[in-house]
Measured scan of single mutants.
Amino acid sequence: QPKKFCDYCKCWIADNRPSVEFHERGKNHKENVAKR
């Protein structure tokens, strides 16, 4: 299972659409993006 690194959250997520979309909709991710 390939992994994708989220540069905002400094974490690895599964590299498939549902996982990536779920991660990017998450509160934690949105806060990290807003902080940039």
Rank of each mutant, 00 (worst) to 15 (best):
Q1I: 15
Q1G: 02
Q1P: 12
Q1T: 03
Q1M: 07
Q1V: 06
Q1W: 00
P2C: 00
P2G: 14
P2Q: 15
P2E: 14
P2W: 01
P2D: 15
P2R: 13
P2V: 14
P2T: 14
P2K: 15
P2L: 13
K3Q: 14
K3W: 00
K3N: 01
K3C: 00
K3D: 12
K3R: 13
K3Y: 13
K3S: 10
K3H: 02
K3E: 15
K3L: 08
K3T: 06
K4E: 04
K4T: 12
K4G: 03
K4A: 05
K4F: 08
K4Q: 07
K4W: 00
F5N: 08
F5Q: 05
F5Y: 10
F5K: 03
F5L: 11
F5D: 02
F5I: 04
F5W: 00
F5M: 11
F5P: 02
F5T: 02
F5S: 03
F5A: 06
F5V: 02
C6V: 01
C6H: 02
C6Q: 04
C6L: 00
C6T: 03
C6I: 03
C6G: 00
C6N: 00
C6F: 01
D7K: 06
D7M: 07
D7Y: 06
D7V: 02
D7E: 13
Y8M: 13
Y8D: 14
Y8K: 05
Y8I: 09
Y8P: 15
Y8G: 07
Y8W: 09
Y8E: 13
Y8T: 11
Y8A: 11
C9M: 00
C9K: 00
C9S: 10
C9H: 00
C9R: 01
C9L: 00
C9Q: 01
C9W: 00
C9G: 02
K10C: 05
K10A: 09
K10L: 11
K10N: 09
K10Y: 12
K10W: 01
K10V: 02
K10M: 05
K10P: 03
C11Q: 15
C11V: 14
C11H: 05
C11F: 04
C11L: 11
C11E: 12
C11G: 11
C11D: 15
C11K: 11
W12I: 15
W12K: 02
W12P: 15
W12C: 04
W12R: 02
W12A: 07
W12M: 14
I13V: 10
I13Y: 15
I13S: 03
I13R: 02
I13A: 02
I13F: 14
I13K: 00
I13W: 02
I13E: 07
I13N: 05
I13T: 06
A14I: 11
A14D: 07
A14K: 06
A14G: 06
A14M: 01
A14F: 01
A14E: 11
A14C: 08
A14P: 08
A14W: 05
D15Q: 06
D15E: 09
D15L: 05
D15V: 05
D15W: 04
D15H: 04
D15K: 04
D15M: 09
N16K: 14
N16Q: 11
N16E: 13
N16S: 08
N16D: 07
N16H: 10
N16M: 13
N16L: 08
N16V: 09
N16A: 14
N16C: 15
N16Y: 11
R17W: 04
R17Y: 07
R17M: 15
R17A: 13
R17L: 12
R17Q: 12
P18T: 04
P18W: 03
P18Q: 09
P18L: 07
P18E: 11
P18V: 08
P18R: 09
S19C: 03
S19N: 07
S19K: 04
S19P: 01
S19V: 03
S19G: 05
V20K: 02
V20N: 12
V20F: 04
V20P: 03
V20T: 08
V20A: 13
V20L: 05
V20Q: 06
V20H: 12
E21F: 04
E21H: 03
E21C: 04
E21R: 11
E21M: 05
E21Q: 11
E21K: 13
E21D: 09
E21N: 05
E21T: 12
E21A: 08
F22H: 09
F22P: 11
F22Y: 07
F22K: 09
F22V: 14
F22L: 13
F22C: 14
F22W: 10
H23Y: 05
H23A: 01
H23D: 04
H23P: 03
H23T: 01
H23G: 01
H23K: 04
H23I: 00
H23V: 00
E24L: 01
E24N: 09
E24S: 07
E24M: 03
E24C: 03
E24F: 08
E24Q: 03
E24T: 02
R25L: 10
R25T: 13
R25M: 14
R25C: 09
R25A: 14
R25D: 14
R25K: 12
G26M: 14
G26T: 09
G26R: 07
G26C: 08
G26S: 13
G26L: 06
G26I: 00
G26W: 06
G26K: 06
K27W: 07
K27D: 08
K27H: 14
K27F: 08
K27R: 11
N28E: 12
N28R: 15
N28P: 11
N28L: 13
N28M: 15
N28S: 12
N28Q: 10
N28T: 10
N28F: 14
N28W: 15
N28A: 15
N28K: 15
N28V: 12
H29A: 05
H29V: 05
H29Y: 01
H29M: 03
H29E: 05
H29S: 02
K30V: 12
K30H: 00
K30M: 08
K30A: 10
K30G: 12
K30S: 10
K30I: 14
K30Q: 12
K30D: 06
K30L: 11
E31W: 00
E31K: 10
E31D: 10
E31Q: 11
E31M: 11
E31G: 09
E31A: 13
E31C: 05
E31N: 05
E31T: 06
N32A: 13
N32F: 04
N32M: 07
N32K: 10
N32E: 15
N32S: 10
V33P: 05
V33D: 07
V33R: 09
V33I: 04
V33W: 06
V33L: 07
V33E: 13
V33F: 08
V33N: 02
A34V: 10
A34K: 10
A34D: 15
A34H: 12
A34L: 07
A34E: 12
A34R: 10
A34M: 15
A34C: 09
A34I: 14
A34G: 12
K35Y: 00
K35E: 10
K35T: 11
K35Q: 10
K35D: 11
K35P: 12
K35M: 10
R36V: 12
R36P: 15
R36G: 15
R36C: 13
